[in-house]
Design a protein around this nucleic acid. Structure first.
Lengths: 129, 129
DNA sequence: AACTTTCTACGAACTGTTTCGTAATATTGT
DNA sequence: ACAATATTACGAAACAGTTCGTAGAAAGTT
C-alpha cells in the first residue's frame, strides 16, 4: 500500500509528475512560480523531498552532486488512494453519492458530461458480459 | 465558509446526522459500538464536541445538565467541501477525472451505473436549454 | 447528610506536519 | 589558492490533531 501523501508532499509530486524528474532547486522554483502567498524556502522543499524518498514516494539519483528525484508512485494510484479514503470517511462507501456530489459541486460542461456518459455506457456493457 | 472537519470530527458528525441530536454520552457509546480498534474515552469525545461547538460545526442546548448537541452543518455541504478540496489538490480541478477515478476505484453495480447515467442525461438536457 | 456516579471544563502529553536555521561539504569563479 | 556560491544533512521550533487524566460541580442513592 502506498503512503498517502500530505498536502505539501502532493505539491511536490505534481511538479515531478509534470517534469518526470527534477532537482530540488527546480522543484522549489516551480513551486514558487505558482505560489500565491509566501515563498517556500529552499531547505523546506529539500527536507520534504528527503522525507518522501525515505517513505518511498520518491526515488533519487545521487550520482550527481545535485540529486535528481523522480516520483515513485503513479498519479492514478495516488488519486485512487484519496478517493478510497474520501469514500469511506465522508460518503459511507457510496461511489454514486460521490459522483453526484462531484457533478453538482463543479458544474462540468456538456461535452465533459457526454464524455462521462460514454465511459459509463462502456462500463455498463462490460458488466453485462 | 464552513470549516473542514477533521477525521475525528467527521465521526461525530456522522452520529449526529444519523440521530439529529444527542448527548456526549450517546455519541460516545455509538462510536464505541462501531469501533473496531481501541475504545474512545468519554472525555475524548467530550473535548471534540466542545471544540466543534466553538468552531461552529455543532450547536448545543445547555438547558439540561447533560448538554444536547446537534450538527450545525449539513452533510451535503460537508461532502461538497471535501470534494472541492480533493478536486483542487489532487485532480487539477477536473471533475471528470474524479468521476472516472471514483467509478474505477469502487466498481459500482450495473444498476447504480444506470442511475448515475440517468442523472447525467438529465443534467445534459438541462444544459441544452 | 454522606457517598457514589455523572457531567463539564481545563490542561497537558503525544504524534504528525510544516517550516526553516545552521553546519558541513562540494563546486565554481577570480 | 581563496572567496563566493550551491548543495546536502541535521535538528529543532511552531502548529495542528488526537487522546486522556484530573478537578470541581451537579445529581442521584442510601
Amino acid at each position: 500500500m502506498i503512503p498517502k501523501p500530505t498536502d505539501a508532499e502532493l505539491e511536490i509530486l505534481h511538479v515531478l509528475w509534470k517534469y518526470g524528474s527534477a532537482t530540488v532547486r527546480a522543484v522549489n522554483e516551480e513551486q514558487n512560480k505558482r505560489a500565491g502567498g509566501d515563498e517556500i524556502g529552499y531547505t523546506t522543499t529539500l527536507k520534504f523531498m528527503q522525507i518522501m524518498a525515505d517513505k518511498g514516494l520518491l526515488t533519487r539519483d545521487e550520482s550527481q552532486r545535485s540529486h535528481v528525484y523522480s516520483a515513485a508512485v503513479r498519479e492514478g494510484d495516488v488519486q485512487s488512494a484519496f478517493v478510497s479514503k474520501l469514500l469511506s470517511s465522508v460518503f459511507h462507501g457510496s461511489a454514486m453519492n460521490l459522483v453526484l456530489q462531484a457533478l453538482g459541486t463543479s458544474k462540468p460542461s456538456t461535452s465533459e458530461l457526454q464524455q462521462i456518459r460514454a465511459l459509463l455506457d462502456e462500463e455498463i456493457n462490460n458488466n453485462q458480459r
